[in-house]
Design a protein around this nucleic acid. Structure first.
Lengths: 179, 179
DNA sequence: GTCTATAACTTGATAGAC
DNA sequence: GTCTATCAAGTTATAGAC
């Protein structure tokens, strides 16, 4: 631990920030090292290759996502509202930021990133289903969140998040009766 | 027109396919030219720089999106269901594929791509609102579509699209009464 | 309109000093 | 643990032949 661990974390932070802000073409070893305040040699001591850096980020995101599922289940507002609210990426939200970074890797075809997404998506959905009691409804809620989150990934912040959350909550609260 | 126009289109097709399949790091001039079956020199005759290639793709997507808004308004199943169904990217769907390609550019911070998205998103939403009659509901429907589409961008095809579409349609059909 | 050759620069990675 | 060379490969772009 101590400073070794700290530098590793700083490097992963810099990597994810660069991925989110400017895409993977901009997230070079040079740029990551500079943003973390170390030299390229320093970076390569902690992560022996760019692939190892990707591994480190995906693994960190898996841990964060697991923690988030637990927080979601305990959220007073309910798992659905919690998911929707945390789908809008705030500047200083490490989970959502890291998630967008991993999304970039998944979109490039990185199999580890795609697998991490598939796993986390199912865990989140199951937590929502526990609240709303229906599989398809849990999917719809999650997809609304994913839509918000996709917008965040290009820097478009919704100006009507509260309306959307209460709109969805209202739809859930008064389920349609069978015909 | 004739072969000049055809080569331009082939180059834009190759560019968007590479962006979608492997990300912008893989969409090099070399790779685009090879995929289109011309040399790099041939590419650079039609598009004088990589920036011009991006311009060409974004402009083409704007035209495709405009056409799609018209089709959406005329769709027998309704604008909402049309939007949801076409949000799942099929292999041979040029609009959705080009959209994911432009998404990649927007995520990298390309201002033209972000602006094209902002404009198209508002046009699509307005068309949905014309059907469902409520602004927030139109947003919710659109966000579900965007969520589906974000999944497609990492190659995750939903196995329950019909359930989701009919689930959303049912929610719309029986709007909650004011308390 | 399309090609090859080449120039100028960037990127990922290694070696070895401190 | 961190740094400064250094290198081979890849990237964008230009020049000029056909």
């Amino acid at each position: 631990m101590t400073s070794a661990r700290s530098t590793r974390e700083k490097l992963l932070d810099a990597f994810s920030e660069l991925l989110v802000a400017a895409g993977s073409r901009a997230a070079t070893l040079d740029a990551v090292a500079a943003a973390a305040g170390v030299s390229k040699g320093g970076l390569l001591y902690h992560f022996g290759s760019k692939d190892a850096l990707v591994d480190g980020l995906v693994e960190r995101w898996r841990r964060m996502a697991d923690d988030d599922v637990r927080e979601m289940r305990a959220a007073p507002e309910g798992a659905a509202a919690y998911y929707l609210r945390t789908s809008v990426v705030e500047r200083d939200d490490p989970l959502a930021r890291t998630g967008v970074a991993v999304l970039h890797l998944a979109q490039e075809g990185d199999a580890r990133a795609v697998a991490a997404f598939t796993d986390a998506t199912e865990d989140w959905r199951a937590a929502i289903e526990e609240q709303v009691g229906d599989r398809v409804l849990s999917r719809v809620v999650q997809l609304v969140g994913d839509g918000l989150w996709a917008g965040s990934s290009i820097g478009v912040a919704p100006d009507d998040l509260d309306d959307v959350v209460s709109g969805v909550t209202r739809l859930l609260g008064e389920p349609p009766r069978p015909a």
